[in-house]
């Protein structure tokens, strides 16, 4: 069970003078249950890439295999794919439209052709999962705050019970508490539902803390693909692409530049703190 991107090429404005290659021969494989972050500068093709993975966009050449089947094959059951691959866009405003929150969350499972009771059960579960208060269930989604809208939008996707959850800049517009909450939820979803999670982010700290694997995109090319620790060890390459690195790596890098040798290669803040503590103690002795 996996997602395979096979030499995907995607162009904008094909056959006009505005033609522009958004993705150039991108290939990779995502196994079930992976926790993957896609990073890259604005315009590097990250959003295009995840939209291709669930068939929202059709590649100009190359294809995507989901569980061994070519999703762009004309006989492929596309509507079935919708229930398996969820994608949450950056702005929840693009998907909320119903009169109240509960009906809005029901919309997705309803489109899957489920029975009414099952639809409502799923909607209820999903809303509980995103920690929305009961009294908000029957309010208009347009009256909610930005953070609440995001929760409802996520519930709308979760109610479809996807196996793969893709999120395009999920933390944009969330406050620190909201960000923390979101990643806690993602962790839980992975553990309880065995979901594959793919998210796009510009915040390297949250990538470092959460993702197990990173794909780095640059100008439509996949330039790096590896374990989080491994990718973040390429300090110069990443900064050369205009990307940031996690604060923890940055601190240790500064220490190294100032002649303090560190032997660890920390990625999370916890690890960096431990390493600094170790160095400090070593100095005292």
């Amino acid at each position: 069970m996996s997602i395979i991107a096979d030499h995907i090429v995607y162009k904008y404005n094909v056959k006009t003078h505005f033609e522009n290659i958004a993705l150039d021969e991108v290939s990779f494989k995502v196994e079930d249950g992976e926790y993957l972050a896609v990073i890259g500068q604005t315009g590097s093709g990250k959003s295009t890439l995840i939209q291709l993975l669930n068939g929202l966009l059709k590649p100009d050449s190359g294809t995507v295999y989901y569980n061994g089947e070519d999703i762009f094959d004309k006989d492929y059951d596309f509507s079935g794919l919708r229930g398996k691959m969820g994608l949450m866009f950056q702005y929840p405003e693009y998907q909320l439209f119903e009169e109240d929150v509960f009906s809005d969350v029901c919309f997705g499972p309803q489109n899957l052709g489920l029975e009414r009771a099952e639809v409502e059960l799923r909607a209820y579960e999903a809303l509980k999962m995103v920690d929305l208060k009961d009294e908000a269930f029957y309010r208009s989604p347009f009256e909610l705050s930005g953070g609440e809208k995001k929760r409802v939008a996520l519930a709308g996707i979760l109610a479809m019970k996807p196996q793969v959850l893709m999120l395009d800049e999920p933390t944009a517009g969330l406050d620190p508490a909201g960000k923390k909450w979101l990643f806690k939820l993602l962790k839980k979803l992975r553990k309880e539902r065995d979901m594959t999670i793919i998210f796009i982010s510009h915040n390297m700290d949250e990538v470092a803390e959460n993702a197990e694997r990173i794909i780095v995109m640059d100008k439509g090319n996949l330039v790096m693909d590896g374990k989080t620790r491994e990718v973040f060890s390429y300090y110069d390459e990443l900064t050369g692409m205009g990307l940031d690195i996690p604060t923890s790596s940055k601190i240790l890098h500064i220490l190294k530049e100032n002649g303090i040798s560190t032997n660890a290669d920390p990625v999370t803040l916890r690890e960096a703190a431990d390493e600094i503590e170790r160095l400090y103690k070593a100095r005292l002795h």
Binding site: N54, R82, Q95, L112
Partner: peptide, 16 residues
């Protein structure tokens, strides 16, 4: 541009 994004967001939710 917005219309395109909305159509995509609703396709993901199973609108054919």
């Amino acid at each position: 541009d917005e219309l395109d994004k909305i159509i995509k967001a609703q396709s993901v939710r199973g609108v054919d």
